[in-house]
């Protein structure tokens, strides 16, 4: 499987994701410049964390106008794998590919720590290697990671099993302690925690590895 890691000006977790794919699950991966107009040849697209365009205006708000974004939207609509982490999640909600929005943390400070997540839905392209309710340790690092949506959207997310990860406690003020959601079709995942920082035991956790392995599992099944 061949992944594209889209690099916007100000992305800063691009190499972390690149190494997670190359060294963690040993699959093909390329960095793709934000000015590219085609993602032909790739099977999945990964949008890394960071501060695209300095997070000026609003996190992710400027990135959505980059040329490569049309291709991300095409991937999403064609049912291909799209994963946005941290700033990538913010870009996906900004694009409307995922419901809700990410706003300033409840206590309005940036938080970096390794937190416990609960796997809510283990039947997706991103979580099939985990067990339902499995607790995993994944780092977070964000100032605007508080997931917000209205009651109607929350009811829909629940009804469609779109809530994929939840924090085990109130970390940043997110609605329903949501850490990651998919679209209805479940081929687009956005999450604030950084699985790409949890792929080696020596870094404190390798619980993120299964997320990337899940994608490979899923793709193998689709291809067969």
């Amino acid at each position: 499987m061949k992944f594209a890691v889209v690099n916007f000006p100000g992305s800063n977790c691009d190499m972390d994701l690149y190494y997670a794919i190359r060294d963690g699950i040993k699959e093909e991966v390329e960095l793709v410049d934000y000015r590219e107009t085609s993602l032909d040849g790739f099977d999945g697209v990964l949008i890394p964390g960071g501060f695209s365009y300095g997070d000026y205006l609003r996190s992710g708000a400027i990135a959505v106008h980059a040329p490569v974004v049309k291709e991300i939207v095409r991937f999403a609509n064609e049912g291909k794998i799209v994963l946005g982490i941290c700033n990538g999640f913010q870009i996906l909600t900004e694009l409307g590919l995922l419901p809700g929005a990410l706003i300033r943390n409840e206590k309005s400070r940036f938080i970096c720590e390794t937190v416990t997540l609960k796997v809510i839905n283990d039947k997706t392209a991103f979580t099939n290697c985990y067990q339902e309710n499995e607790e995993i340790r994944i780092p977070i690092a964000h100032g605007e990671g508080r997931y917000y949506c209205d009651d109607k959207t929350l009811a829909e997310l629940k009804a469609n099993d779109q809530i994929i990860f939840k924090y085990d406690r109130n970390v940043n003020g997110s609605v329903d302690q949501i850490a990651g959601v998919t679209n209805k079709q479940k081929n687009v995942l956005g999450m604030m925690p950084h699985p790409e920082r949890a792929i080696e035991d020596i870094l404190g956790s390798d619980d993120g590895l299964k997320l990337f392995q899940s994608i490979i599992n899923y793709q193998v099944r689709v291809n067969n």
Binding site: D16, R109, C112, P139, A141, H194, R197, I202, L203
Partner: peptide, 14 residues
């Protein structure tokens, strides 16, 4: 806690 200590995924001791 308000400093990102793990970006670049090379931090062995935080």
């Amino acid at each position: 806690q308000t400093y990102d200590s793990q970006v670049k995924a090379n931090t062995l001791v935080k």
